Simulated assay, not measured.
Amino acid sequence: MRKVLAVSGVGAGIAAFVALVLVVVALAFSVTVDGASMEPTLRDGDRMFLEVWTRDEIERFDIVEADAPSAVSGGAVRILKRVIGMPGDRISVSGDARVLVRPAGAEETYVVENPAWSAEPGAELEWRAVPEGAYWLLGDNWGASTDSRSFGFVDAEAVHGRVVFRMLPLGRNGAIAGDVRLAPVEPGSAR
């Protein structure tokens, strides 16, 4: 009987240790959303799991944590934004939430369909080429996001990883919806 109690006590101790390690790892590889720039996809206070080991595998529409230039401090500020432009792409953005993309090496033009974006009047930007080793990042909250429309391209080395899972709050935890896509633009309708 003593052996059984000793073994179950060791098992409980190991389980507690493993649980503690998992909590520490989850906290070490997580980021908390600060602000409304990614609403409705991410909300202020959400704790997101950050995959730091995938920073070299970033794909279009991933949500990433990166360092971006700060107009206030002159230094860098950590942001969470969606990757819209990949290296070699050509991008054109208008204030009415119309984003056009010509993927690297392609002649076709696509419009980014993001259900989170709402229209606001504004001027269209000229076509810009995303440099090698950089990304064009936009927030899902079109009217309340400081993103590449303000600070330009973000160097790939400034990306810390991608967020793929909401850890907290528990009632909304789970994988991030992937409902953003490229849709072909009819010939002649691309500005």
Rank of each mutant, 00 (worst) to 15 (best):
A28W: 12
E39V: 13
L42H: 06
M48H: 06
A175I: 12
D140C: 01
V83P: 07
M167C: 08
L42I: 04
F153G: 00
A116M: 07
R2W: 07
E124L: 02
G178V: 05
I91G: 02
L42E: 10
T109L: 15
R43M: 09
L42M: 10
L80A: 03
V18M: 02
A19C: 03
N114F: 09
V99I: 14
A16L: 15
G35T: 05
L22R: 13
G133D: 07
Y135F: 15
V64M: 01
S73K: 01
S150Q: 04
L137V: 03
P40T: 10
R90Q: 14
G9L: 15
V18A: 12
L27S: 14
P69A: 01
A15V: 07
G139S: 03
W117R: 09
D56N: 12
K3A: 08
A129M: 14
V7G: 00
E186V: 01
A156R: 06
P169F: 11
D46C: 03
G133I: 00
R90I: 05
A71C: 06
V18R: 06
R60C: 04
E51A: 11
P121I: 05
M1D: 06
G122D: 12
R47C: 04
A129Y: 07
S94T: 14
E186A: 15
G139D: 09
G178M: 03
M38P: 01
M1A: 13
L22Y: 11
G88M: 12
E126H: 09
L137W: 08
R43K: 15
L182I: 05
D67C: 02
A6I: 13
A71K: 03
G171N: 04
I84W: 05
R181K: 01
N173I: 08
G13I: 08
E126M: 01
V33C: 06
A19M: 10
I84M: 01
A6T: 05
T146L: 03
A129V: 15
L168A: 13
W53S: 14
I176T: 09
V164R: 13
I14L: 14
A177M: 03
V4A: 12
V130R: 12
R162F: 07
A28F: 05
A119S: 14
